[in-house]
């Protein structure tokens, strides 16, 4: 399981790695991404920037899709179509986590929900809904 976790962390793009994000562990539903607090992700004084929280949500979604693809037929390139983010609580200067849930994965697209939290997983700081295209080997 740790090997798989490291493989998924390696799939995270340079953007995620420069903000210190990594796959913390695999829970029952999928990979949990951790983002440590750093000045680099601060927005208004004392709070995280909404864009950094959005980045964490997108990385959780990407990790969840790759995990689902690997579990299905094998990994494939994906392309994001859109994202809607709800900001629910101010992100505090502390470690944040996010996990993605695949609502539906078809042949050519995936509907993904993601949530981000800090101390209490039951109190999300933000949630997001995203659509991704799944590129097939035939170029679809």
């Amino acid at each position: 399981m740790n090997h798989f976790r490291d493989d998924l962390t390696a799939l995270l793009p340079p953007y995620a790695q420069s903000l210190g994000m990594f796959v913390r562990h695999m829970d029952g539903t999928g990979p949990v991404i951790e983002m440590p607090f750093d000045q680099k992700i601060q927005g208004r004084p004392g709070f995280l920037h909404g864009g950094a929280i959005s980045g964490l949500l997108e990385m959780a979604a990407i990790a969840a899709i790759h995990q689902a693809l690997i579990a299905r037929h094998g990994d494939a390139p994906i392309r994001q179509v859109n994202v809607t983010i709800d900001f629910m609580r101010g992100g505090l200067p502390q470690t944040s986590y996010a996990a993605g849930t695949i609502a539906r994965m078809g042949r050519s697209m995936a509907n993904v929900n993601a949530r981000a939290w800090q101390g209490d997983p039951e109190k999300p700081i933000a949630t997001a809904q995203m659509h991704y295209l799944i590129k097939s080997a035939q170029g679809g």
Partner: peptide, 24 residues
Amino acid sequence: RDDLVGDPGTGVMASAVVISLLDN
């Protein structure tokens, strides 16, 4: 910047950078 890349295969900017930009 190369540390803002969202897909190392193509070098495209991470979509979240665009979110931060448009948020501000």
